[in-house]
């Protein structure tokens, strides 16, 4: 019990420090961005705005103040839980993020589960029968996919299945002209299909390669040799001996991959015009929406950090060696 409290305390402290560092760094980056928020906000209408009007907007947003003062105001409100108002959506930043996050959540959750489960299975198979035909096939797939950009896979899938075959929609998270509440679950799944496949195809590759390495290591380990000497078959060694030892690092990798998943989602959502958090990030960046962009950065920091912490926690829970160190060692 005490260990868990200590674990949580340490993690919370670390998270607070991390958020502070990320906040400062991303603020510095954003304030040095060549995009002028007012110009980006007005867009083409900038021609119709007089310099005086422009100054009024800048003054109201506080863009004219020195960066340090702006940062302190922003950080002060942040501490009170106020992320500010998004300029392009005209809504509080947290509302935008939570709406977009739910849309993205299903995409990421599905892609994450598929790539984890399939990647682990493929990696285990390839590693157990190292050098066989099936291993070669899986390896070719994994190496190809690991070196293919996400957006390219997305575009190819879009061309084949949406444009030529017309099996899947070309954009959005639900049919055009409907709102999110009107769409049925099937319509939403139909729209999710290609983005999920895109992210999974790529995600599987890395998990597969990692699992394969670990499986080969386990199959050549002393305990695998001993199991074979006892008359265990290859399948028996894989299922009874190797799986546990391979699953442990795989779980860690799976949770630690949340960051990459998020990065992949930005690209996939862009290609499929899927209105999730990733797309909101791009829009905020291009539109000079500083509060929204910084909000997303901070929220995704928490997201990735939580993933890594869960990995740590599971590791301690599952590995007997870690478990016993804290408790009574006999």
């Amino acid at each position: 019990m005490f260990t868990i409290i200590k674990f949580l305390f340490l993690k919370t402290t670390r998270l607070a420090l991390l958020i502070a560092a990320v906040a400062v760094l991303s603020f510095v980056l954003v304030s040095n961005s060549p995009i002028d928020p007012v110009d980006a906000y007005a867009g083409a209408a900038i021609l119709n705005i007089s310099p005086e009007q422009r100054d009024i907007i800048a003054q109201r947003w506080g863009v004219d103040k020195p960066p340090i003062e702006r940062f302190l105001t922003w950080a002060g409100q942040l501490v009170q839980g106020d992320f500010g108002v998004s300029a392009i959506f005209n809504e509080p930043v947290l509302d935008v993020i939570s709406k977009r996050f739910i849309t993205s959540f299903w995409l990421m959750a599905l892609a994450w589960s598929f790539s984890g489960a399939l990647g682990f299975g493929l990696g285990l198979t390839a590693g157990a029968w190292e050098g066989s035909l099936i291993d070669r096939g899986i390896r070719i797939y994994a190496y190809t996919m690991a070196s293919t950009p996400t957006f390219w896979v997305g575009i190819v899938l879009l061309m084949v299945f949406s444009v030529f075959l017309s099996w899947t929609p070309t954009c959005c998270a639900w049919p055009i002209g409907m709102s999110a509440d009107q769409a049925t679950i099937w319509q939403r799944l139909h729209h999710l299909l290609l983005p999920v496949i895109t992210l999974s195809l790529i995600g599987i590759a890395k998990i597969t390669l990692h699992t394969r390495e670990k499986t080969i290591e386990a199959m050549h380990s002393d305990y695998a040799i001993f199991a074979r000497a006892q008359g265990e078959s290859t399948i028996g060694i894989v299922l009874r001996q190797a799986v546990r030892n391979v699953a442990l690092p795989a779980v860690t990798l799976q949770f630690a991959s949340l960051g990459e998943l998020f990065g992949g989602a930005v690209l996939a959502e862009q290609v499929f015009a899927y209105p999730g958090l990733g797309r909101a990030t791009v829009e905020a960046g291009i539109g000079g929406d500083v509060p929204l962009l910084l909000g997303i950065v901070l929220i995704s920091t928490v997201f990735v950090f939580t993933g890594n912490s869960v990995a740590d926690f599971i590791y301690q829970l599952v590995d007997p060696r870690m478990r016993k160190v804290a408790g009574s060692s006999s």
Binding site: S221, Y223, I225, R228, A229, G231, E232, R244, N245, L248
Partner: peptide, 23 residues
């Protein structure tokens, strides 16, 4: 040999690393 190993011929390995650390 495939039939005999484990049942008729057994190995006593040299160190504890021959046991699975997680079982």
């Amino acid at each position: 040999l495939t039939d005999l190993r484990g049942s008729q011929i057994a190995l006593i390995p040299q160190s504890v690393t021959y046991l699975n650390p997680l079982l």
